[in-house]
């Protein structure tokens, strides 16, 4: 029997020693939807994904396709494809060998390796070593590996954080295609670029607590008129401002000089309906 939700998280909590990193997180994800997990460094995004995978102990309850990850982690992980923040393949492995290893672990036929290479648009790089791939190619390979066994749920941990805008666009297209195939996708990110095209729902984590749950539009409405200190995570202020505009969250840079170089103060303003229509 199909579960009501693809992913169900109830009162999720997690501490590392005396540090509370997740506190009372509750949310559900519908089948076939795409959820963006937004937050700065240390907000708890990666830890949340590790709890969903059942690879760390946690408090509360997590079910993936109706399977509890705490008690039946191995079974739950059959339903999950995972893309880590940093692709975790051997540098000396060829693309085909890296995928074949995952195919063997997940007990899927070798023919899926060809499918995955094609999906990632890496058929021509089949015999190329992973260490020779560009960052964008590696992330597409990682996404193809996650989808190799055709799991219903994909967890993507900041898949585009280290990519240039061109590679990011390619990756987002691939994520969009997989979503079109009915996959449930949860992706963590601190980059808003193109998010409104992908995400049905946004969850904002702030220091381990769920600060917001709703659509991109609702998030935009919520932040309008407020002022924020934004951690740029190495992105240039110009790129960040562009990304906000593309996402339909216009904002004005207020006092950059008074803050460290990696942070800037933003004032969110009214969205420009004409700009959104033009993009659409």
């Amino acid at each position: 029997m199909e579960s009501r939700f693809a992913v169900s998280v109830q009162h999720l909590g997690k501490s590392y020693g005396s540090v509370r990193v997740l506190d009372d997180i509750t949310f559900d994800v519908r089948h076939g939807s795409c959820v963006a997990l937004l937050g700065g460094n240390g907000a708890g995004k990666t830890t949340t994904l590790k709890c969903l995978l059942g690879v760390v102990p946690f408090e509360g309850a997590v079910e993936v396709e109706g399977v509890p990850t705490r008690t039946r982690g191995k079974d739950a992980r059959r339903n999950i494809g995972y893309v880590p923040q940093i692709p975790a393949f051997g540098e000396q492995d060829t693309c085909a060998a890296a995928l074949s290893f995952i195919a063997e672990l997940r007990r899927v036929g070798k023919e899926r390796v060809g499918w995955a290479l094609e999906t990632a648009n890496l058929s021509a790089q089949s015999a190329m070593k992973v260490g020779e791939l560009s960052g964008g190619m590696r992330q597409r390979l990682a996404l193809a590996a996650a989808a190799l066994s055709d799991p219903p749920v994909l967890l993507l941990d900041e898949p585009a954080s280290s990519l240039d805008s061109h590679s990011r666009r390619d990756l987002h297209e691939m994520i969009g295609r997989l979503r079109g195939e009915g996959k449930t996708i949860i992706l963590s990110t601190h980059v808003l670029d193109s998010l409104e095209h992908l995400a049905d729902q946004v969850l904002v984590l702030d220091r381990g607590r769920l600060a917001f749950a709703g659509s991109v539009g609702e998030l935009s409405a919520r932040v309008r008129g407020n002022r924020f200190v934004v951690n740029l995570n190495g992105n240039s202020p110009g790129d960040f401002m562009s990304a906000l505009l593309v996402a339909g969250i216009p904002a004005e840079r207020v006092t950059p000089a008074a803050l460290p170089w990696e942070e800037m103060l933003l004032a969110a303003s009214e969205p420009d309906p004409a700009a959104r229509e033009e993009r659409a």
Binding site: K50, L53, V55, R77, A88, I102
Partner: peptide, 14 residues
Amino acid sequence: ERGTLTYLLSQPLD
């Protein structure tokens, strides 16, 4: 340290 352990454990394995 390399971050590859979580990836390996994310597979359906004990």
